[in-house]
Measured scan of single mutants.
Amino acid sequence: DTFTFTLDGIEVRLHGASEELIKTIEELLKRDIRWEELEKWIREWEK
């Protein structure tokens, strides 16, 4: 599955994202998160 969203005018596609990761990103997007914050968060998630 591919999860697609737009952040700061950039279309982002995550391939093979888990349901948990998708739900977490959706929550972060509701908080009007900035790209830099999401990028940092995703790097931490990957560890």
Rank of each mutant, 00 (worst) to 15 (best):
L38Q: 00
I22L: 07
W35Y: 12
W35R: 04
H15A: 07
E11T: 13
T6F: 13
K30F: 06
K40E: 12
W45R: 01
T4K: 07
K40Y: 10
E36S: 12
K23V: 06
K40H: 12
R31Y: 11
D1A: 12
H15T: 13
V12W: 06
E36N: 11
D1S: 14
L38V: 05
T6I: 15
T2S: 08
T2D: 15
F5W: 02
E46G: 08
L7M: 07
R31C: 04
E19S: 12
T6R: 04
T4V: 13
T2W: 12
E37A: 09
K30M: 10
L28D: 01
W45H: 06
G16M: 08
E46R: 02
E46H: 11
W41D: 02
H15L: 09
I33W: 07
E36K: 12
L7E: 01
I33H: 03
V12N: 01
R13W: 08
E19Q: 13
I22R: 09
E19G: 08
E39I: 11
E26Y: 09
E20K: 09
R31G: 15
I42S: 01
L14C: 03
A17I: 13
E27C: 11
E44W: 04
H15E: 15
D8Q: 06
K23L: 10
E11K: 05
I25M: 02
E20Q: 11
V12T: 03
K23Y: 07
L28M: 15
L7T: 02
D8I: 02
I10W: 05
K47L: 15
G9D: 08
K47N: 15
L14P: 00
T24C: 08
R13C: 06
R13I: 15
D1Y: 13
E37N: 06
E39A: 06
T6N: 09
T24H: 14
I10A: 05
F5L: 04
W35C: 03
R31S: 13
L38Y: 11
I33Q: 04
E39K: 09
L21E: 07
D8T: 02
W41Y: 14
E39S: 08
D32P: 09
S18K: 05
I22Q: 07
K40T: 10
I42D: 00
E39R: 06
I22P: 00
S18A: 07
L7K: 04
D1K: 15
T24A: 15
E27H: 08
W35S: 03
T24M: 15
R31W: 10
L38A: 03
E46Q: 08
L21C: 04
S18V: 04
R13M: 14
D8E: 08
R13A: 14
D32L: 05
I42M: 06
K47S: 15
W41M: 14
E20H: 11
S18C: 04
L21V: 13
I22A: 03
L28C: 10
L7P: 00
R34N: 10
W45K: 01
F3K: 02
E11S: 06
E11G: 02
E26W: 06
K40N: 10
L14H: 00
D32C: 11
E44G: 02
L14I: 14
I25E: 00
K40L: 11
W35N: 02
E44Q: 04
R34F: 06
A17G: 04
T6M: 12
I25F: 03
E37L: 07
W45V: 05
